[in-house]
Each structure stands twice: as C-alpha cells, then as structure tokens.
Write a protein that binds this DNA or RNA. Structure first.
Lengths: 236, 236
DNA sequence: ACCGTCCTCCTCCCAAAGAACGAGATGGTT
DNA sequence: AACCATCTCGTTCTTTGGGAGGAGGACGGT
C-alpha cells in the first residue's frame, strides 16, 4: 500500500553519509514491542551492533548528552513526551547534522508535510513491510529525503520555505521555553504556567518575551497559530 | 472507492421525513460546475423541480430569509465564506430541523467527525459516483446519518457528546459574534478587529464578553482552542 | 579563569484584555 | 404597542500580558 518515493535531494539536511558509515542509531519509541521489532530488524538488515533506544524525548536527549551523538535517529511522532513536530525540532536543535526519520501509525498528509518542512530526513509508516522499511532507511542514510508515496507535496515551495524558516525559529527555543510554549498553546494563563512549573510569574514572562521575539509574534494567540501551523504540538 | 455506510439513527436531528416529502432542496456550493452537476443529478434522480442554489454562506442565509426554509441542504465544506464547520453551525442555527449534508473533496477523518458531532445529517465525497451519491442522499432524507465508509468513528461517545454540546454552544453565536470569533482565531487584537469591522473597540469587547460566556471560555486563547477542536474555521 | 548559555527573579511601566454595569437604535413578531 | 433579538457605544475598574532593564546563580567548554 505505502512503499516510498524519492523527493528532492537534501537541501535542509547537512551531511550525506555513506550508508556504511551509519554504525550507531537511536530509536525513540515508547511502545516496547514496536521498539524491539525495529531494533531487531535494523540489527539484522544492516548488521548493526549498537542500536540504542529511548522511550521518551527527554530520555533520548539525556542519553545523547551522556553517550554522544548517534549516526541516525528514528523518531516516533507520538511520544508521551512530545506529540507532533516538537520532538523533531528539539532533537534537531541538539544534533543538527544527524538525519532523523519520523515514524508514525497514521499518514496524515499535513503532518508529513510539516515534518519534512521541519527538516526530517524522511517519514515512514509503522505498517510498512520490513523490506520496504529497510530500503527507505537506506536511501535516507544516503542523503535522500524519503516520503510515503501516498504523500502529495501539496503546495509549491514558497509557502514551504516559510514553514522551514518557522521550524528553524522554533528550533532555537530552549527546553524550558518549549515547555512554556506548550502550556500557552493549551490556553493556560501566565499564573497557571508559573504554578505548573513551580517558578515565579516574572520568570514565565521573561521566557515568554524571549519566545515571542524568537518566533516573531506579538500576541500569544499568534504564538498559538504559529505553533499550530507547523504542528508543533498535537492535541492529546 | 468510497460509497457509504449507515451509522446511528438520528439522535441529534429532529425530524425524519419520508423521502417523497423532500420537495425543495438548497445547494450551497461555490464552484459553478459542481453546483450545476449536483442540481442536475438531483432533478433527474429525485424528480425535483425546485433546486435552489447559493454560492456562499451569506447568500444562502439571505435566500432562506427571503424564500423560506428548504426541505434539505447540501453544503460544501469549503466555501470562500466559511471553511470548516462554520457554515454547518450557522445554518443549523437558522434552520435547526432541516437535514444538512456536507460535501467535500477530501475525506479528512477529523473533519468528518467534527461535522457529524456538529449535527450534520451526513457527509459525502465529491468524487462519489452518481448512483452512490443518490443512494446516500435518499438514506439521509429518510433520517439515517450517513458517513463515507472510509470513516472510522474514532473515539467512543463520551468525548463526542462533549463536542456536540460544544457545537450547540457555537450555534448560539450571532453572525457578528461569529465574525469576531473568526478574527480572534486569526490572532487579531481587539483594536484590529474593531478596525476591520468598522465598529468601536467597546463594541468588540461587548461581543467578546458574550462569546466567552456562551462558549464558556475565560481567556481568548481558550476560545481559539475550543473553535479549533470543533474545526469551526479551517486555515486558509 | 573567563565566557556563553540557560534559568531564575525583580522592578517599573504601559498596553491589552475582560468583567460589569447602563443604554440607545433597529427590525421583526406577536 | 409591547416584546425580543441584535448591534451598537459608552464608562469604570481589575486583571493579564508584555517590553525594558538589571542581576545573580549554575554549568560546561576554552
């Protein structure tokens, strides 16, 4: 049903690396079965020894800090930690040059398009057959940007470039700022945010000012719009 | 590809009416070709004489005021005037007992689910074959709630009931309040809204207070969230 | 030891948002 | 005529939001 097709050659992503230089990959996936299945498939098909795994975004980030950068990442779109493009954006902030493959159960066209604009190396379905999955990953690790062939690139480059730029701006947010933005997007007031994060409201305001300046918004409702336009946070 | 399946019997919709009592229907569709094609199909297949048409939501509303209520409505999801559930909600406010069929090019599951929760009698694809279309409409006019069979009802009743309740609340908004809410959802400030509608900012505030009270929101960002949750306004 | 980043908190200040009144004008219905 | 819904505008007051600027502590890298 959904194998995969090539698109443009990498513009956003920094480095091609020959497939044989991918030695260490990191799987970020909260569902244990799927996680194991993926790891196993990769070990066998690519002869990899080191397949690292993490069950949440925060776990992944800490693991990267401690154990260093992997050569490639496979990232679930729906983590308990980070739904939507948030995980991708935060990981790219930490490891800008490592190709990140998004993996998800549903192939929402808008989500795929948002992920690609945010700089994913590719997007694959969880229901893909092993061979097709392996082939897609191989091509991604050779520098190709791969999307499901059910995907239609929707609108021409102009609007897409704006979204890529936006994603870059969001990638400049610090972790704490991202937390606060998420709460803003849930309709919380500054006071509530300060309570939830156990910090002073003044601190919340300071962060918000920084956020606004980074994403170029003036009103918080605009911030919500911008976040939604790149699908930063998906509804629970 | 997408014919149609029955779902629940009408709970939200007020009246069954035997198909032969549908004498006058209103098509709201901005694309002229599709509009004509629909009208023609209906005339032939149902032997209808009076097929009224309107090219925008506002045109439809005025026409109903002048020429009275139709027996059924076919409503395009993407009007220049009203994208998403807005048209449905506003029409149901005006003609609560008339079955409204949504018609759209894309079958986004979330959109279908939002439309059904908002009280649509059914949802059909524009790419449906004539016979299937006619069959679906006949069943809707007999009181059945019809969705494309690609549609999966997603989550159980509890959450859906909340959305229906929400849709009811939105249906209580006056036209001017709906305009203002739309601008709020575009991130506009009160001052900008007052300028765009050529009214005083005090008036805008008055309307907003009424809106907030009706949809039970305290902050305007919450209003945006609520509107998005029922897909009141789709992004341009 | 020094610098950069991030997080924290504060004060002062002004603009925006929202609640709570009242009230006039219109148009349609009963 | 009385009523109702809607739109309009105003005043007053309180709460939030947001910008500017300063400042200190923690941590990591050069």
């Amino acid at each position: 049903m959904d194998s995969a097709t090539s698109n443009a050659q990498d513009r956003n992503t920094a480095r091609h690396l020959p497939v044989d230089r991918v030695r260490e990959i990191l799987i970020v996936e909260d569902h244990p079965l799927m996680c194991d299945a993926l790891a196993l498939t990769l070990k066998i098909s690519f002869g990899l020894k080191n397949v690292r795994t993490a069950r949440s975004l925060s776990a992944a980030q800490e693991q990267i800090r401690n154990q260093g950068m992997p050569d490639a990442v496979i990232l679930d779109v729906n983590l308990p930690d980070a739904r939507g493009a948030e995980g991708l954006v935060m990981l790219r902030r930490q490891i800008p040059d490592v190709p990140i493959t998004m993996i998800s159960a549903d192939l929402d066209n808008a989500m795929i398009s948002a992920a690609m604009a945010a700089g994913a190396q590719g997007y694959v379905s969880k229901s893909l057959a092993r061979e097709a999955l392996v082939a897609s990953l191989r091509r991604m690790w050779e520098g190709e940007r791969v999307t499901p062939d059910s995907y239609v690139p929707e609108d021409a480059g102009e609007e897409d470039a704006a979204r890529a730029e936006l994603a870059r701006r969001f990638a400049s947010l610090t972790p704490q700022q991202m937390k606060i933005l998420r709460l803003i997007c849930q309709g919380k007031a500054n006071k509530e945010i300060s309570y939830e994060l156990s910090i002073a409201e003044a601190t919340v305001k300071t962060h918000i000012t920084a956020i606004m300046s980074k994403i170029n918004a003036r009103r918080r409702t605009q911030a919500v719009l911008l976040a939604n336009s790149v699908r930063l946070f998906e509804p629970a």
